[in-house]
């Protein structure tokens, strides 16, 4: 009897530890989804476009870092900014060469052109770097750290810390700089913003650049954990979109929370239910939210849409 009780108790503790473990890893993937989701929201709010190519910038972040590390033999601290800069350039070119010249910018044409862009970027990446999956070394070793029975990797901490930093910078930019305020004005009312002298086209370009920077950063910090390849952008992009939908297409905290919720649910679902259906969880949540609460999980439609 005693033994059984002990075993039972032990199993319970094990389960708790497991849940904690899944939650930790869920939070760090969730942070990645949040960054990608904010990228979606920034473009959506500035232009009304859902950029299907968003995930490709995530891929570019990881692959370019790898390129600078392995081929050009740069140190990590130099490779990362280079990768971000090239991704930003790609975002800029994408807007100038594909989005802006579009003669009939109907929603369907915009969907198709961003899909086309995503296929093109993915294809070029495949031609340049091949189909293999690559690993990027973690930023500071891979010695696991133990917290309350669960172990986390230093990279997890990097991810959470960098995400927090990016979100803080993001917030500062949108609320305390002229360009940021101008972009917010565009998101509230594009015509009125144009009338008061804001260069709306430049803000649109800007939104693409910022989104590609955010996307590539997400891709860089996650690559040491999940590996990277030319086609990782599809899934990561879609999950990021899901985070943005949960957050009601906000580019602030709501989407961050959305990303974290998604990450944790996915991680728990994969660990406790079935790992095969892990990817389905995000899409089921996506459909449910779109059907039931298209304005996002948190309250009113017009709340925090920066």
């Amino acid at each position: 009897m005693k033994v059984r009780e002990f075993l039972c108790k032990k199993r319970k503790i094990m389960q708790l530890e497991q849940i904690l473990q899944y939650t930790f890893s869920g939070l760090s993937t969730g942070a990645i989804y949040a960054l990608i989701g904010i990228g979606f929201s920034i473009i959506f709010n500035a232009t009304g476009i859902i950029n299907f190519a968003q995930g490709e910038f995530v891929m570019l972040g990881g692959m370019l870092t790898l390129f600078f590390l392995e081929v050009l033999k740069l140190p990590l601290w130099a490779a990362i900014p280079c990768a971000v800069a090239v991704s930003a350039l790609a975002g800029l070119l994408f807007e100038r060469l594909a989005i802006r010249p579009l003669r009939q910018p109907t929603p369907i044409n915009l969907v198709i052109i961003t899909i086309a862009g995503s296929i093109l970027i993915r294809g070029l990446a495949m031609l340049l770097w091949g189909k293999d999956t690559h690993a990027i070394p973690p930023f500071t070793g891979d010695e696991p750290i133990s917290i309350a029975g669960a172990t986390i990797l230093p990279q997890h901490i990097w991810i959470l810390a960098i995400t927090l930093l990016i979100i803080a910078v993001n917030k500062f930019f949108f609320f305390h700089t002229i360009s940021g305020k101008a972009m917010r004005a565009c998101s509230y009312n594009r015509r009125a913003a144009g009338l008061v002298g804001i260069d709306v086209r430049r803000m649109v370009l800007f939104s693409f650049v910022i989104s590609s920077v955010l996307g590539s950063l997400a891709g860089i910090i996650v690559a040491p954990l999940t590996m990277t390849a030319y086609d990782v952008g599809i899934m990561l992009g879609l999950k990021g979109f899901c985070a943005a939908i949960i957050g009601g297409m906000s580019s602030g905290m709501a989407t961050v929370v959305g990303g974290l919720i998604l990450g944790v649910l996915e991680s728990l679902g994969a660990g406790l239910i079935s790992s095969g259906y892990k990817d389905a969880i995000a899409f089921i949540i996506l459909l449910l939210i779109l059907f039931i609460r298209p304005q996002g999980l948190f309250g009113k439609a017009e709340s925090e849409r920066v």
């Binding site: 086309a116 296929i119 093109l120 993915r122 294809g123 070029l124 495949m126 031609l127």
Partner: peptide, 10 residues
């Protein structure tokens, strides 16, 4: 082919 699809579509 993937590059060509993307380019063609665009």
């Amino acid at each position: 082919d993937i590059v060509i699809y993307g380019g063609l579509l665009m």
